[in-house]
Amino acid sequence: MEISNAGLDVDPDFSSMLDRLFADLAPRTWSDREPAGLDRDAWRQVDELGLTLLTTPEDCGGSGARWPEMWTLHRSAARHGVALPVGEHDLLGRWLADKLGWTAGDDVVSVGVARCGGAVDVPWGADVDTVLLVEVHGDGAAVSRHASADLTWSTDGRLPTSRRARTHVPGIAKRLQVAPDDVAELRLRGALLRSVQIVGALERCVDLAVEHAAVRVQFGRPLLAFQAVQGMLADAASETALASAAVAAAIREADAFQDLRAARTSVAVAKSCSSHAVGPVTRAAHQVLGAIGTTREHDLHRFSMPAFGWRGEFGTGADWDAELGASVDATGLPAVWHRIVDGLPA
């Protein structure tokens, strides 16, 4: 699919540099053995370019980049299927650690938000160095910090290609309080990250399906010549373009307001639309690919499966829908709508 940045100010050189880098790097990060682990060489290579702390402020050791660069990086990484916890580290782990005044050194950091009862799913939990576990309670949350190696991890039941692992928050741990606003921001950051990644992954699913349909011949014609196939591809591409437009708008607002909470309506729209696109787009792509798409040998699952994983994290589509619906209930549709189309902070 044509890459549209929907009016975002994105440096084309940065964008093409990332595409070259990730095209080369991504296959090295794919390991089909269990446990997969984190490819430290690949991590170092990305780290040396300042990409693992892309949005972390310079005074915290990061590159101090803004949301449009974040969009370019994670969309590109997901388009190429790079399996590295760059977003978890930069946008969630280091952000929270810096907020709490914890120094992380060269550790790779991830974050998990516990459910009641203490079970917690952590993306890349078993593979990173440091894990921050967040326990939300009535007014705010408590965060504890752990060496990943000190926790017991289970990877049962996770999706193919997924690196999420499940643990329990240890009963005895030093806990720091974080304010409700910060908990809300953490969720928004995660939702926006996942939305961007979903767009990148779905774009690749559509590309793989279109490329396949152009060369695979049945009944003497390429699949692309069959109207039923055209219909599936057109719908998949349209849903992907729709999600991309929604996510780009949220990025634009996040950048304009310099405060993610002021952009929360647009982040809700972005996570809703990207999450709801995952089912129809991956269904169509897998259908067009036929049996080959169900194999380990073919790459399609490296894009379709992560998209499903991201769909369920930091609020499902339905969760964000319910928040938007509650706003409509409270203030009426015009007020919510005006906030969206006016592009003004909430």
């Binding site: 437009a245 708008a249 709801h276 829908d321 619906g325 706003s327």
Partner: peptide, 30 residues
């Protein structure tokens, strides 16, 4: 807008209404 002007209709779920709002917003952007 008319059906939700005085709160959501009893038969509507918040997620059902919100999903339409989100999709319309994305269509607006596109």
């Amino acid at each position: 807008a008319g059906l939700t002007a005085n709160g959501l209709p009893v038969r509507a779920s918040a997620a059902g209404v919100g999903r339409h709002a989100a999709r319309l917003a994305a269509l607006h952007h596109l």
